[in-house]
Computed example of a mutant assay.
Amino acid sequence: MTKEMLIQISNCKLYAKLVGENKGKPTIVMDAGYGDDSKGWDSVISDVSMLSNVLIYDRAGLGKSESSSNSRTSRAIIKELKELLTEAKVEPPYILVGHSFGGVNLRLYTTEYPNEVCGLILLDSTPEDYRERFLPTMPKEFQQAYNKQFVSECNYDEFMESLKQLKQSKRNVDVPLIVLSAGEKAHYSEESQTLWNEMQKEISKISQKSEFIIAENSGHYIQNDEPKVVTSAIKTLINKI
């Protein structure tokens, strides 16, 4: 089954696609990285949809979705996602899968709407203390390029506000969690790569039922570099629920 939808929420229409054969398992909801639309999941969607129904969507202003007048912080984004799921009649509980900035959004979704989430998978998700702890360890050119990239979705201040919202939210989650860390990041020194993996491992501590996996041969887009690692993590999580 593949169902494409343009769903009216309070102030815009959001594009979503529901794929899969429902096997009585929770629906898997996937949120892509900064500036990425639902195509960011093309490399894994067919395999993941064999496990359960999967909903992928374009955040407001990306892909086939209209722009929203709301701010582009994580808190505003997850409210829109909640509206989308309600209007599309996709019933909870959900298994949430977030990449990079999508991981920030879905961690916040899990703490804001705990009764709707039964599992969480984070793919190289942005740590809440990224700016303070990680960015200063990188070369100046990297830092400048990082700061200039915020043009396709939320701006730099909104992104940092999202990390602050995550920090201020109740951090621990009471669901099974799998954290995947990219072990082969481009432009990272050995020291930076080690720190990155440490920070990813710290994220796994927000749940007492967590697993931490380093995708040794992956850059930031683990779903493209090692799609089987992602599918396998989702399968593992489904079996725990």
Score class of each variant (00 low, 15 high):
Ile45Arg: 07
Gly24Phe: 11
Ser181His: 04
Asn155Phe: 03
Phe150Leu: 05
Met199Asp: 07
Leu135Ser: 06
Pro139Gly: 07
Gln165Glu: 15
Ser181Trp: 02
Ile214Asn: 06
Lys148Trp: 00
Lys164Val: 08
Leu51Ala: 02
Val44Thr: 14
Lys164Phe: 08
Phe150His: 01
Lys170Asp: 07
Glu211Asn: 13
Lys25Phe: 10
Ala60Lys: 04
Ala60Asn: 10
Gly98Tyr: 08
Asp124Ser: 13
Val54Asp: 03
Val175His: 01
Val48Tyr: 07
Phe142Ser: 00
Leu51Glu: 05
Glu226Pro: 02
Leu163Gln: 05
Lys167Ala: 11
Arg171Gln: 14
Leu6Gln: 13
Glu158Tyr: 11
Ile9Met: 14
Asp37Val: 02
Val90Gly: 00
Pro127Arg: 10
Gly102Ser: 13
Thr126Met: 13
Gly102Val: 08
Ile56Gln: 03
Ala215Trp: 06
Ser204His: 01
Tyr113Trp: 11
Lys240Ala: 05
Lys148Arg: 11
Ala16Thr: 04
Val90Leu: 08
Val44Glu: 04
Gly119Thr: 08
Glu226Ser: 12
Gly119Gln: 09
Gly119Phe: 01
Glu141Gly: 01
Lys148Asp: 13
Thr137Cys: 02
Gln208Gly: 08
Ser192Pro: 00
Gln144Phe: 07
Trp41Thr: 06
Ser125Arg: 07
Asn70Val: 04
Lys148Cys: 00
Pro127Gly: 00
Leu135Met: 13
Ile78Met: 04
Ser189Asp: 11
Val19Glu: 14
Asp36Tyr: 07
Glu80Phe: 05
Ile222Pro: 03
Gly183Trp: 09
Ala186His: 11
Lys148Thr: 02
Lys39Leu: 12
Tyr15Val: 01
Tyr156Pro: 00
Tyr34Trp: 03
Asn11His: 15
Val29Phe: 09
Ala186Ile: 10
Ser162His: 09
Ala16Pro: 02
Met30Asn: 02
Gln168Asp: 14
Val117Ser: 06
Leu166Ala: 10
Arg59Ala: 05
Ala16Ser: 15
Ser207Lys: 08
Ser169Asn: 12
Lys205Arg: 13
Lys79Asn: 13
Lys235Met: 04
Glu112Leu: 06
Met5Ile: 12
Gln143Ala: 05
Glu161Pro: 03
Asp42Lys: 15
Ile206Tyr: 02
Pro92Ser: 07
Ser100Asp: 06
Ser100Lys: 06
Asn22Pro: 13
Val175Gln: 08
Arg131His: 12
Glu216Met: 09
Ser10Lys: 13
Asn115Met: 08
Gly119Asn: 11
Ala182Val: 09
Ser218Gln: 12
Gly33Ile: 07
Ser232Leu: 02
Lys89His: 12
Lys235Ala: 12
Ser67Met: 14
Val179Thr: 08
Ser69Arg: 02
Gly119Pro: 05
Gln223Ser: 14
